[in-house]
Structures are given as structure tokens and as C-alpha cells.
Write a protein that binds this DNA or RNA. Sequence first.
DNA 1: TCTCAAGGCCAT
DNA 2: ATGGCCTTGAGA
Length: 439
Amino acid sequence: MNFLCEVDLEEQCPVCGDKVSGYHYGVLTCESCKGFFKRTVQNNKTYVCVENQQCKIDTSKRKRCPFCRFQKCLNVGMRLEAVRADRMRGGRNKFGPIYKHDRALKQQKKALIQARRLRIESNQKDVTFTSNIHSIAILHNTKLNPNKLLSKPCNSPAVLQHQITSPSNWAMKLENCSNAAELAAFAEAVVGPHHTSSRSISTQSPRIPQLEIEFLQCDPRDLQLQKNIFSCLQQEQACRHIEPGTFSSVYVMADQLLCSIVEWARTSIFFKELKVSDQMKLLHSCWSELLVLEIISRQVLYGTDGGLLLITGQQVDTEMYLFSGTTLSCVQVSYTLNSFNKSLKIVSQIVLFLSDVKELEEHRFVESVQQQVEGALLKYTLASSSQSCNRFTCLQLYLSELRSLSILAEDYLYYKHLSGEVPCNNLLNEMLHAKCCWT
DNA sequence: TCTCAAGGCCAT
DNA sequence: ATGGCCTTGAGA
């Protein structure tokens, strides 16, 4: 295999498209945009656009309009506060965990592409190989067309079986999955059957209703998140040999869910305006609530009696060990939150900003956001229901319930973290480690 | 000790 | 003013 052929894998600067030289001020950028951003901020420069403030910025045109270039720097997420006022050199900044995880995700993507190359090279060998691993039974029972998962059509059960169960094929299939249904079927091969309460893999396991699949398909971010989860699970299974359906695989899902929550927060209105130190404080304070809320949201939208539907399309029975005793309460709370399903993103904003965090640098701003977000939710409930005041009060009561649930979940995860039963190098561990340092 | 994201320098 | 390369230094 040619490992030298890395050019197409190189990241492009999101500002001008030049070659990336590393993380600069919060984003992977090229050396010239790094320098440009630094000079602009350090020297407090102001620019004017002579066009309509929509100049195209690329390597050849980046010098033409510094105004639009700087706007683009800000738009892609470069941080003003990462330019040091005291001009101190060296050292590390406070973006640490976010950079680290972002890098890990990019590494996974690279690994996927390399695995795909490997797969292409050994293509002929693979299709003639036969084995008797159990997942074939699941795929034969599925209403979904398993051929959709594959790089090319194939009718032989033995060949199909190998293509589904061979780790060397996972990356390729994952790359080829273009909708939730394909991912859901792939999930069963990688993670195990969707009724994970049963340790043995059932040949009669019930399918996910088509309507739920359609719902899951609605949000492209869900699809990307599912891909990330399967990619991580694949890596964990290859490197650490974790078993499908174990706590470790659930932990990987929770970690990826947490990453998507952090990503949502980083780009969400108000929160993105905060200094990174304040963002970190708020996230450290409420990440577990947001995680539980995310799981509940999914339950509200797609769940069925007696179980939690995970983003992978798997259903976890309430007696399952997901978050120990918290799961049952999750289901109960989810039904109560049912009437708020469309306002759950506003609820997330409340959770994010109502955290009881002391010593925020921009506490006044956060207080004003708290009022605005609560106001928005009240307006929403007023517009959507005649008994909105009751619902609003009700929701606030359940937020405290959510807090209790998240504390239980966090304690359980922390216990697992301390006992070393969880995968390493992930954001969830960082959060739990921070808890360990702060308490 | 090593890493890597800061700031600095200087030819263009 | 730009951008490639160098130096620095906290944290892993």
C-alpha cells in the first residue's frame, strides 16, 4: 500500500484553501491566515470592503480584500481571545480538549479512507472468503436491502456474510451508507441487534419501524453522528476488541453524542459569543444534563413503551444497564416532556445557560441570555398552548428532575471511568477527569 | 523530553 | 502588508 499518497488527505484552510499548518486560534488554518489574523487582532486593524462584503477568498485572491478575509476568519471560528494580549510566547492554550477531540475525529476519517484503499486492494480475495459468523442471520431477516450496504451487489449468502462481518469491509460500507436505514442495518452487524437487553443475538429480532427510520433520516446531523459512532465503534473493536452490546460500545455512543452536543453549543447563538474559558465552565457544569436531555429528546420523538431508542437505531430496554437506575426515570420524564418536543432546543439553551456556575468572566452577559432564553420559551409556550403558564411551570419542575438524573448518570459514568472499564482518549473521559479535578 | 500553538523575525 | 520559517514554553 502506498502510504506516501497523502496529498488528497491534507486538510485545506477553511479561509483560503491553502495547506493547513496546524491549529491556529481555534481552527485548522494555513500559516498565512494565521499570520493575517494575528496581525489584524494585535494591531487592532480595521478594514473596508470596496465591493459588497462578499468577496471570494482563495489563495490567489486572499490579499485583495482584508475585510472579507478577516470576516471569513471569524466565520470559520477563529478566536479573537486566542491572540494573547500580553504577547507571551510558547505554552499551551485553553482549547486543549476540543482541539484534541477534533484531531481524533479527523484521524478516524483518515483511517477510514486508508482502510478503504486497503479494501480495494484486497477486494478479490475478500469476495471468495467464507466464514460462519452469526450476523448473517440478522441480515437475512431484515426488510432492508442488505446489498445497499455493500460496495457492489452480491447474492451469495456466504459472501454477503463476510462482507458484513469483516472489519476490513466496515470502513467501505460506512462510507457507502447514505441514509439512516442503511446505517441501522450496518449497526446490527457492528454493534449487535437493536434489542440489546438480550446478550444473545436473536435471529428473530424485531425491526425498527420504517416510520422511525424516516424520522431519524430527517436530520442530516444525525446521519453524520451515526457515521462517527460506527467509525469509533469499528476502531474500538479493532484496537481493543470490545464486544458488541457491551457497556464500552454504549460509552462510545455517549462520547460521540457529547461531541455533537459540544459542537452544537459552540456554534449556537449567544454561546459562541462567550469567551472560551466561560464556555468551558458552562459545559463542564451541564454536559451530563445536555447528554441526558439529548437521549430524552430522541425518546420523545421516536421512542416506544419500555425502551430507549438510541441514535444508532438500537433500542435499549429499560432494565438495560445504560445509565443504571437512571434509564427508567429517563423514560418517565420523556413522556412528561412529550408536549415540549418542538421546544427541546430552547430547553437545551436553558440548561446551557442556567448552570449555576460561579466566577464567569462574562456573568452579566450570561444573566441577560438566561432571561432572553426563558422569555423565548415562555413566548413559545404562549403561542402554542392555552395552558402555557402551567406547561412553563411544569417544564421548570422537570428541569430539576433532569438535573437529578444527570447527576446519577454522571456518578455512574464516573464510577466506570475510575474502574477503567471505558475506552480511552475521548471527550467523555475529559469531562469526567475535569469532574475529578474539581471535586 | 517531546509536542505544538503561541509570538517574532525578516525577505519579499 | 504578507507569509514562510524560527523561537518559545506550558503541559502531556
